Simulated assay, not measured.
Amino acid sequence: MNKLLVKIIGIASFLFLNSCKSLVNKQTKMERSAAAPFIENFDSQSSFDFLWQDDSSQSPSSYVIEGESLKITTSVGSQDRVKAHTRRKDFGVGSYIWRIYIPQFEKNARCSIGAFLYHSGKPAYEVDFEIGFGKSALRETLNAEVDQAVVFCTSQSKPFTSEEFKVKMEAWSIFRMELNNVGGKYLVKWFINDQLVKTLQTEVKTAVKFSVYTSLENLSFMGSKWPTREHYALFDSFKYEQ
């Protein structure tokens, strides 16, 4: 075998081994990142700006760290959709916990607090908590008291389902979502104040990863009129762990 051929084989072997090493390192890094816990106490504006990104839809970015909470507001008579999501987009199997203050919503107002997971690829996927006053017919069906808000626990696709529950207004509550791997697809569980309220086996593969959202949006499905006063929501903490 001549020296040139030996040299070519040596270079090719070197490049191949380094390519394999690079792929292994990249995969290990991705797995390490995906497994890493994420804790946000909403007590530092600079930390929030570093870890979160605005996603308000043609709306003002009306949120701020105030009194060790994330305060989000929407304005009178508007269709504001104020949202922020984690810059991390690799969340998958694990437990997601939001601690949220639910204010007294204006009666029949189209305003909703959101705590949800969203995958922005094609197709998009979303699983969420949406919390608001709720339309009159639904409140009657749920026998909601005057001091209770309606909680929608929803999977937006594969399959689409939505079930509604109740939670106290003018109080802090814990909203937890668990994503489990069953046969390579997500099994989702929704908890309100540690009570399991819904379980759903989805067709969404666990290869699909999510960003985490906090939001306050004036949405038509939640009520029968646009708000006639400013609304707000407080997020005290968010935690993710496997």
Rank of each mutant, 00 (worst) to 15 (best):
D55G: 10
K209N: 05
K26A: 15
Y125N: 07
K225R: 13
P60Q: 06
H231L: 07
H119R: 05
Q104I: 13
T28D: 15
F129A: 11
E170C: 09
L23S: 12
F210I: 00
S46A: 03
A137V: 12
E130C: 12
A171H: 09
F105R: 08
Q148V: 03
V24H: 13
S155A: 11
E170K: 15
W52I: 04
N143C: 11
F48Q: 03
A207C: 08
L138H: 02
V151W: 00
K71E: 00
C20T: 14
V182W: 10
I65A: 00
L23G: 04
E163W: 10
P123M: 04
E140R: 10
G184N: 07
Q156V: 13
T28N: 15
L138K: 03
Q156E: 13
V6F: 12
G184V: 04
W226M: 07
R88P: 09
L15Q: 01
S22C: 14
Q195G: 02
F175S: 06
S224E: 15
F238Y: 14
K26P: 08
F91I: 04
L4S: 14
S13I: 14
S46M: 01
F165M: 08
S215G: 07
T199I: 02
T202E: 05
S57I: 15
N181M: 11
A34G: 03
K29Q: 14
A137T: 13
V127P: 02
F238L: 04
G121W: 04
C153V: 12
V204F: 06
S215F: 10
Y63T: 00
A84D: 00
S44V: 02
D128M: 06
K168A: 08
K209L: 09
V167M: 07
S56V: 04
E178R: 01
Y125S: 06
E40R: 04
N2P: 05
Y63P: 00
I100G: 05
